[in-house]
Design a protein around this nucleic acid. Structure first.
Lengths: 133, 133
DNA sequence: CTTGACCTTAGAGTATAGTCCAAGGTTTAT
DNA sequence: ATAAACCTTGGACTATACTCTAAGGTCAAG
């Protein structure tokens, strides 16, 4: 399989596959005649694994580690995998928490304002921001 | 006031102030003798307004618009302000929603795994990812 | 034998919000 | 007079995950 067919099979672009290769997520064999990348069906599985990891919110760097474990399951422990997942979960929770704070502030601001055509001179959003909420 | 003093007063770096100037958030007068930027106390207020906006989750582009309104309140309406806030709120809600999805997936994965020292061959995190959750 | 579809590479561009650096000019204090 | 602390500019760098371009080589069909 050449890169275009793999891309087609996995619904990604050839650019993405080359990018993943550069980042160390996937490797490719080369056709010695023309230098074209060649892939097998196990590369489709690998690409799908990557896509599933992305859906779960892992970064490409996480995924590189997960792939190493996945391809060598015997030599890795559940602890290794769970640690990666927990670290990512923690990062997501931190992001979530600050986003929730921002959401609360914005929601309060929006609620406080009439949104009418009148001059913004006494707009409660602007006053709240001026005061620092 | 020169740039260093403004920076000190607002707890930002001089780089940040120059960056905001480049992005059109703040302007500066220049000392004709040496080309140094000069500021007044109203620039402290402006910088604090920017900082408060950032706390509320507005982007620098949003803030540029908010500053324009704030400095010309008579010519703007509450509607203008509320629209900006609502648009940002909407973006935050979209981000929040996808982050919550990711959080749910990761939480489930972490919960499912024993995290022990045993081989990852049957790790439930890896199996779940393989299957696409 | 040529056209179109495919492949190669290196490198630049996207978005966000700064941060850091180099090379030089100015000001302030000793 | 000179050193420290300040200011100027332009441009490169950070992180993330691609996306696009240019200039060229290869391959299959008609």
């Amino acid at each position: 399989m050449r890169i275009g067919e793999l891309a087609e099979n996995c619904s990604v672009t050839t650019d993405t596959i080359r990018f993943y290769e550069k980042k160390g997520l996937i490797k490719s064999l080369r056709n010695p005649d023309n230098g074209y990348r060649t892939y097998s069906s196990s590369d489709i599985k690998k690409m799908m694994f990557i896509k599933h990891c992305k859906q779960a919110g892992f970064s490409l760097e996480d995924i590189r580690d997960l792939l190493l474990i996945w391809e060598n399951k015997m030599d890795a422990s559940c602890e290794d995998v769970k640690t990666l997942a927990e670290e990512r979960l923690h990062k997501v929770e931190v992001m979530l928490s600050s986003l929730q704070t921002v959401h609360g502030i914005l929601h309060t601001l929006v609620q406080s304002c009439c949104g009418g055509k009148e001059s913004a001179e006494h707009c409660s959003i602007l006053s709240a921001i001026e005061k620092g909420e």
